[in-house]
Simulated assay, not measured.
Amino acid sequence: MSRTQLPYVADDISALSRSLVSQLSQLDHLPGHVEMLNLLAGAVGFRNFQHWRAARQAADALAAPAPLTPEIDYALVRRLLRYFDAQGRLQAWPTKHSHRAPCLWVVWSHLPPRQAMSEREVNDAIRAVETLGDHLLLRRQMVDDGMLTRTADGAIYRRVEQAPPPLARALLAALAGNAAT
């Protein structure tokens, strides 16, 4: 039986060693093959070997650079790509809130930073990156989520400068990779 080789990367070999020593000292026996795989996966932040392998395979399919980070669900990133067309435009609004937030970050990333915009300019910028036909929903949601501010009269909008969460950054990178191919 042929097995696909998956690269294992640990950013800090000293932390890896400490984690393995700690985990091994809690055992009253030598670990078997599967138990050792789980220990190695746990030492770099994953729940178990299956969690690490699923993340590695999804990251490889997305052409994500190693090392993996356990806070990013690469399988979810692959599912989120379905909401976008080949040009990276949002074509469907997710029903799950956990899927909406990263998709909204993609739209947010296309708004000009540190610039006052009229409502019309914001609408035009949003329309350029969506094909679902509801730029008002997206604008309203960004204001509600604190990604966009507006004056009391709604005349001036500004993008709130902040770092997107890791999942949103992974989605942006995957979309950029798809655009390059």
Rank of each mutant, 00 (worst) to 15 (best):
V21N: 03
P70H: 08
S14R: 02
A41C: 07
W52A: 02
L76F: 11
E71H: 07
A75Y: 08
A179V: 12
N48L: 00
P31S: 05
V34A: 09
Q57D: 13
R53C: 08
A59L: 15
P165V: 11
E119H: 05
N38D: 06
P70V: 07
D28T: 02
W105R: 11
G42S: 03
V21R: 05
T181I: 15
V160F: 01
Y157H: 08
V9W: 13
R100T: 07
P166V: 11
A15L: 03
R159G: 02
Q57T: 13
A152K: 00
L90P: 10
R159W: 00
R158M: 03
G177A: 15
S109Y: 07
L30A: 01
M1K: 09
V9L: 10
S109M: 06
N123Y: 09
M117W: 00
A61E: 15
F84Q: 12
T69A: 14
L6F: 06
R127L: 09
D60N: 15
V122R: 02
H110I: 08
R56Y: 13
V21Q: 03
R47Y: 01
D145S: 11
G154W: 06
H33C: 04
R56W: 12
V107C: 12
T131H: 10
A176H: 15
W108R: 02
L30M: 02
A41W: 00
A61N: 15
M117H: 03
N178G: 15
T149Y: 00
P165L: 03
R56I: 13
G154E: 04
R150H: 04
F46K: 05
L104I: 10
Q23D: 01
I72K: 12
D11K: 12
